[in-house]
Design a protein around this nucleic acid. Structure first.
Lengths: 247, 247
DNA sequence: GTTCGCTACGAACACTGTTCGTTGCGAACG
DNA sequence: CGTTCGCAACGAACAGTGTTCGTAGCGAAC
């Protein structure tokens, strides 16, 4: 980034044992901490400690905790590869892109929370918006509706990433608690669902007949996160195609 | 608090008309505070102060701040009226229900954040889930897919409510700052969008050609929150109908 | 050789959610 | 009627949080 610091850092004689502070270093350390202790537990003090410094030093490179997390969000997006032409037609590529987004963001705890408060405008977010719009256009979506569709897809990505993160968190907590007992996704979701099932079961059929009638369908196995996410995305894309005319 | 007031309060004859503490009173006070100072600024101390007591007293009726907010979320849902048969067919009624949900939740700042961390299971949430499932079933959606569809709609409601809340917050901040200058929704969204437009405009057309080409579409007026939300909901329902077969 | 500019950071401020131990009141019991 | 007991209420405190201020230090520039 800065010439002077890099020149100094490159000099072995003056190079300190620790990496010099920089915006990138702060954001990278925060991302690592998100993976280690979770989004909510990433405090300015902990980030500073990871960089072997004090909390006040961070504010030279970052205005806020919010802005720091926005940087982390964008950095996480950098790992998302754009689909290539060989991956199929526009629809296959769009589905691939969206699922990669959900899996990547969901893999970094609740980092997707950042996208709820503010509309991400980092370089990586723009790279992905560009690709999304291009694919939608290739699918024949009207130019005027493309931004709306991208908005809808973004909403879907963010909330699905948070859902995935919550499931992974529960899964980790359960494996940690259950010790050696392996916790497959199936066993996990069944355990989590049983909690909900208890609520649904104790519901008087008189007041909530439909929930009661559909309870087996709610419990149905095979409702893994993957199939559910793929199904929902399919619904949205089908809806975009069916809704062709612009209001 | 002070000796004099407490002495006065202890006297039943002069005791003010404040309601005795109860779970309902605590949650109601918290909801009022959400509307007054915003979701993030609702602290246990402020809730206690509104009830003329100390923070420790709240923990008799509420386990957590999270649980308190879950109660507030459910209480907010109580204001949502279910559509009546006279409101139209299943689709019209479903659209009405969803838009009422978004408007109600979005009207209480970021209270919808509660639905992201935990799946709401309060009585009001169950009342609305029951109605949603009933309407979907009436629309001919397969029994096995109804829960998935309800999930998708819930995701949509929650994220849209947060989007609406953010817009209302910005609007309020702007009216407060602009003083007497009236800030219509149109003027408001234009101002907010100009911020994004600045980002899009300064984007090199070489690297982001589609964003550049679609920029007029992104700025298009008439993209009020209402039309946008209605359009998105239409897309989802169309998708549900088009996607008929269950995977 | 002195001054300047700027990064780094120790210390502190005003808060937060939550818990502990005590208080005081009303009701039940002898 | 006098005593005891359960329990809601709460004052005070703890361990944190994000953020700011003023100062120290050091390389670069005049």
């Amino acid at each position: 980034m800065t010439d002077s610091t890099s020149r100094v850092r490159d000099n072995p004689r003056t190079r300190p044992a620790k990496a010099a502070l920089s915006r990138q270093a702060v954001i990278a350390a925060a991302l690592a901490l998100v993976d280690e202790v979770g989004y909510a537990a990433v405090t300015m003090r902990r980030v500073a400690q990871a960089l072997d410094t004090g909390p006040a030093s961070l504010y030279v490179y970052v205005a806020d905790r919010d802005e720091l997390m926005a940087g982390v969000h964008d950095l996480a997006l950098a790992a998302v590869e754009l689909p290539r032409p060989a991956d199929g037609d526009w629809r296959a590529r769009l589905e691939l892109l969206v699922s990669r987004l959900i899996e990547t963001l969901g893999g970094h705890d609740d980092i997707a929370l950042v996208a709820i408060t503010r509309v991400p405008t980092g370089p990586q977010a723009l790279r992905i918006l560009e690709e999304t719009l291009t694919l939608l256009r290739a699918g024949g979506i009207d130019d005027a509706t493309c931004p709306w569709a991208a908005d809808l897809l973004d909403q879907y990505v963010t909330s699905s990433a948070l859902e995935l993160a919550a499931r992974l968190r529960d899964q980790r907590a359960m494996t940690a608690a259950a010790g050696a007992a392996e916790a497959t996704e199936e066993a996990m979701t069944r355990a989590a669902r049983s909690e909900l099932d208890a609520v649904y079961s104790e519901l008087p059929a008189a007041t909530h007949p439909t929930i009661h009638a559909l309870r087996p369908a709610m419990t149905t196995a095979g409702r893994t996160s993957h199939t559910s996410a793929a199904w929902k995305l399919g619904v949205i894309i089908d809806g975009l195609l069916a809704h062709h005319p612009q209001p």
